[in-house]
Design a binder for these strands. Structure first.
Lengths: 193, 193
DNA sequence: GAATTGACTAAAAAACGTATTTAGTCAAAT
DNA sequence: ATTTGACTAAATACGTTTTTTAGTCAATTC
């Protein structure tokens, strides 16, 4: 069986198990057994369980990035883009149990190995949001004196809200207030005419 | 020694110990020893360790409430009041280690006994913010169609931000973005003239 | 009668030793 | 180059023992 397939099958299987049982409760043995392979195969392709989880996480986040990039590069105006970016981000990451689990890194030591992947996703987000805000500023649709500080506000809001949203199962409760918050923020950033 | 003093001394001592060591690491024995009393005295005035902690918490929150009420009842206009309310709330609660610890109730079972005190403080907040928003609406300074849903937005924002702020030691990092966020929110709520 | 004490104890937490499981390794085989 | 399965150090789980702690209460003091 070609490498490309075995590695993918491992990652796909790991995605299912990690999503369902979490990183710590999933064993390498059960992943191996599920694909009818010896455990050693997993270690042939991945240095460790942590590296496998990071690969699973990267692929999930790459999918999220692709969706978000589509929004950012659309023909819509920057206000619409910013609106859709934030709402879509919350919505699609709601389905990523593995991403939720990484939020625990901010509370427990045992997840520090996900830091790099998390930082990389953060960097992606800052880039996308900076692009949106700068575009809006250039188009004179957004009234922003300092792009970077507005960016920090938005990042703070996103990172703060996602904790109760995903770790305290408040997605349903907060769905409507999030909509309204984003509307308010857009309104406050909109250039007055 | 009169009752009023012993009870107060117990609470004051408990405040110090709970703030420093947390609820679980503080023993009733060390509180008693510190005030040169037998442990039974603590149980004469308080039914349990949990009741003592709740009393400590109530007193801290009563102090916070007093400060916030002063702002709410001031002669300033509602925009200024809303601004000051939010910023002051974050600032003074930053010094309440015991309040921070109650935020853990949303993550761990062992703190469920603080729920009532927390709910009561929430209710206080909703009342104060409703008053501010309604006042602003009446004064026609705030452009709000539905006071209750705007209230939910503000409460969501406050409760979300306080988690990283106090449990992840992000007060310094978030101080400036919070200022700016509040400025943006006020701007979005302000009636256009 | 109210307030305090200090001995007591059930239960919780911590410590400890043993058993089991798991991540990771690697020589042998394919 | 890829896979296997036996192996092992380390981590985790578990049962037992020890220690600590929250809470109690009869006796004492004020």
């Amino acid at each position: 069986m070609p490498e490309i397939n075995v590695k993918n099958i491992i990652v796909e299987t790991a995605t299912i198990f990690f999503s369902k049982f979490g990183f710590h409760k999933t064993t390498m043995d059960e992943i191996a057994k599920h694909i009818h392979k010896a455990k050693g195969v997993l270690y042939y392709y991945f240095k460790s369980k942590e590296e496998l989880f990071n690969e699973v996480l990267k692929r999930e986040l790459n999918s999220v990035k692709a969706n978000l990039s589509k929004i950012v590069t659309s023909d819509a105006d920057s206000l619409t883009i910013l609106n859709e970016y934030i709402l879509t981000r919350f919505k699609i990451l709601n389905n990523s149990e593995n991403y939720h689990e990484t939020l625990k890194a901010d509370f427990f030591e045992k997840y520090q190995f996900v830091k790099d992947v998390r930082d990389e996703f953060d960097a992606f987000e800052r880039t996308q949001l900076t692009y949106i805000l700068s575009k809006g500023k250039d188009e004179e649709r957004l009234d922003i004196s300092n792009v970077n500080s507005t960016l920090n506000v938005i990042m703070m809001v996103i990172h703060s809200i996602e904790i109760p949203l995903y770790l305290q199962n408040k997605y349903t409760e907060y769905e409507k207030p999030i909509d309204e918050l984003v509307t308010l923020l857009i309104k406050s950033l909109k250039t007055l005419k």
